[in-house]
Amino acid sequence: MKFRGRTIGFLVAGTMLALAGGYAVAADTTPAEIVKMRHDHMKDDIGASFKAIIDQLKTGMPDKKIVGDAAAKMAAMSRELPKWFPKGSGPESGVKTLAKAEIWTTPDDFKAAADKLTVETDKLVQVAATGDVAALADQVKATGGACQGCHKPFREPPPPAN
């Protein structure tokens, strides 16, 4: 129950933060700033949270709180993700971005792929709360699949340097 309160807290905080970000985008923001904003979100929020979960998973004894917090953050961020891709921030803007034009030419597919991340990260939050390590491993994999489900059609492969 305590955990659920924290989750909701995270959801609310995440949503508010992202809303603030959303307003910034709506104002006079350059495409370069938008690209940087979404890159930072992807890397520092979604990517870093996912890394925290994977690192826990690899220990064999994942910390419930670390995993739960990170999962909640991912779930919150997944709801904001579509807003990080306003029209005019794609490759046609001239800014260097890995975002493909298909994001805007097939918006329904993009929305469906983003929604899938929400579905999987919501499940991740639930599974994290159970403390079931095997189920967590499966759900992390499913979440990774949701990431790929969007990156494959909508992101250019990043440069090969690891």
Binding site: I46, A48, F50, I54, K58, V140, C147, Q148, K152
Partner: peptide
């Protein structure tokens, strides 16, 4: 091994192109 299992890289990113 984890990447080959899940497509997830150690930094929390995923492989998204042909490697997916």
């Amino acid at each position: 091994e984890y990447l080959l299992d899940t497509g997830i890289k150690p930094d929390g990113d995923v492989v998204g192109s042909g490697m997916a």
